[in-house]
Computed example of a mutant assay.
Amino acid sequence: MMNIVLNKDTMRIEKEQDVVPFRNRVKEYAVRIGMSLVNQTKVITAASELVRNMLKYGGGGMVLIEVVSKGRDNGIRLTFTDKGPGISDIALAMKDGYSSGKSLGIGLPGTKRLVNEFDIKSVVGEGTIVSIIKWKNG
């Protein structure tokens, strides 16, 4: 079944100061669809990790925030797009404990565990696109 987009918003993330308004916007969308506090926390945590990665490794980029619907279930899809150096080894980047930086972040595998759907595409020298979906009841 295809996801139907009910509402969307785009935010440019260029500096650290853009992170809080972005997190607030994700929370607004989560509250609007009636997502539980636990699931709000999961999607905001995942979004925070991905937006910081985009700033740190991709030099910033764009995030598309969408309310999506699949049957009776609503959710939030976030698509992070940067024009950074890309990820040469996605399988390695998806391993627990792997970090290319000196962060104690939850990383990509931790982010994947917080959401229902996770997709990453990256081309070295062109950039990275990460898309996540957190369903309201998931």
Rank of each mutant, 00 (worst) to 15 (best):
V115H: 01
S48I: 02
N116D: 15
T111E: 06
K134S: 07
G61Q: 10
K15A: 06
S100L: 13
D96S: 06
G86Q: 09
S88D: 12
D9F: 15
Y57I: 05
R113K: 15
Y57V: 03
G58R: 04
M54H: 02
M62I: 13
I90M: 08
A46N: 07
G97W: 13
K95R: 15
E49V: 04
L78W: 06
K42C: 09
G105H: 10
E16Y: 00
V20N: 01
N3W: 11
V68A: 01
K27E: 11
V124H: 00
G127C: 06
N39D: 14
L108R: 08
A93N: 10
L108F: 15
E117Y: 08
M2Y: 10
S48C: 04
S36D: 06
T10S: 14
I132L: 11
L104Y: 11
V115W: 02
V68H: 00
F80A: 02
A46D: 10
M11R: 10
D73V: 10
D89I: 04
K95T: 13
D119L: 04
G101P: 00
L92V: 14
Y57L: 07
R23N: 04
L114D: 12
E117C: 01
K134E: 07
R12A: 05
N137Y: 07
I4T: 14
K102H: 12
N137C: 01
L78V: 05
V115L: 03
T128V: 05
K15Y: 03
K70Q: 11
K27Y: 12
D18C: 01
N74Q: 12
F118H: 08
K27P: 00
S100N: 09
R113S: 13
E28D: 15
S103H: 03
L114Y: 04
R72K: 15
G97I: 07
I65W: 02
I120M: 09
L108P: 01
E117W: 02
I13Y: 05
I65R: 00
R77L: 11
V43W: 01
A30V: 00
K70R: 14
G101Q: 02
A46I: 08
Y29W: 07
R113Q: 14
G34K: 04
V124A: 01
I120R: 06
K83A: 15
V130S: 00
V31W: 04
V115M: 03
K15S: 08
G58Y: 09
T45I: 13
G86R: 09
V51H: 01
K70S: 14
G138H: 13
G58V: 04
I65L: 13
R77N: 07
R32S: 09
Y29L: 09
V130K: 00
G61M: 08
V43H: 01
G59W: 03
K95W: 06
K83T: 15
I133T: 15
S100H: 10
